[in-house]
């Protein structure tokens, strides 16, 4: 920056560190809580420094059957459910969005704009505002307590379609003309040219959608009544309710930690793609 006064630099770093402390404190507390035994976690004041039970807690959380009195599926299985749901949503959204964007950009056909607006409308209908009727539809289709029921209704995506449309529009027309002279048909052009050219966009979108899918709460809460189909995010809420009776906060916080770990890892290690995805899909 313009000034080179050391006091400003020190102040800047101080503010940033304070901000980080503020942001990180809840997560630190979670980590600390997950590293003590259950008895320590009932004694006020609660610890601020990690204990030595972290790995033990992780083992009993992942493999055990939840809190005493609310025996549930082991957390590793619920994490697997979450993973299946997150991956189906991410891949599903990308797949159906990229092909519809392809059709809308590269073909001229009757009702093309009609389809475009139909997809656009989904932007205005978040699951939260149509839960009850959507629930009925899914129930009528017999999709309750299934992976399809978890992911299918969330798969339509206007934002992803718009993003791919935007990406395709920036690809020069000559690319298509050249491919046509080379004799490539539509699907060949799609596989050989469009898909490779959209690679980073797909990856960026995947990062965002994986987080979106993993963090779904209301929808899985409604349509999974079978404990075997519960996702880890939903189960945390159930544990929270149960905590009134059995305050095993070490287990609860370990579950919280495990539930937030995959998306956090994705954000931290794919930060560039994450930022790209975030800024491109919301514009």
């Amino acid at each position: 920056m313009v000034e080179h006064r050391p006091i400003l630099t020190v102040l800047t770093h101080l503010v940033m560190l304070t901000g980080i402390l503020l942001i990180a404190f809840p997560i630190w507390i979670t980590f600390v809580a997950a590293s003590h035994d259950a008895i320590r976690m009932t004694q006020v004041p609660l610890p601020l420094w990690p204990g030595d039970q972290f790995w033990h807690n992780m083992k009993i959380t992942l493999l055990g059957s939840g809190l005493r009195g609310t025996e549930t599926t082991p957390v590793w299985w619920m994490m697997f459910n979450s993973l299946v749901m997150a991956l189906s949503i991410a891949f599903g959204k990308i797949a159906i969005s990229i092909i519809s964007a392809f059709a809308i950009v590269y073909f001229r056909f009757p009702f093309r704009m009609g389809f475009f607006w139909l997809i656009f409308i989904t932007l205005m209908l978040p699951v939260e505002v149509r839960i009850l009727p959507t629930f009925e539809v899914v129930a009528n289709l017999g999709l309750l307590n299934s992976y399809a029921g978890l992911s299918l209704p969330l798969i339509a995506s206007a934002t992803a379609t718009f993003m791919f449309r935007q990406v395709f529009l920036t690809i020069p027309d000559e690319m298509l003309e050249s491919a046509r002279i080379d004799g490539a048909g539509p699907m060949r052009f799609f596989w050989d040219i469009l898909l490779p050219l959209s690679r980073t966009n797909i990856a960026a979108l995947f990062v965002i959608l994986f987080i979106y899918g993993w963090n779904q709460y209301l929808w899985p809460l409604l349509i999974t009544t079978d404990a075997d189909m519960t996702t880890v995010v939903v189960s945390l809420k159930q544990m929270l309710t149960a905590a009134e009776a059995t305050p095993e906060w070490n287990i609860i916080m370990m579950t919280a930690l495990l539930a937030m770990l995959p998306p956090i890892l994705v954000v931290v290690f794919m930060q560039k793609l994450f930022v790209k995805g975030l800024t491109e899909t919301d514009k």
Partner: peptide
Amino acid sequence: LEPADRDIAMVFQNYALYPH
């Protein structure tokens, strides 16, 4: 006939090379 079947080749202004 489709462009590919006309037995022609075309050089474009912006070259239109496949970047990948």
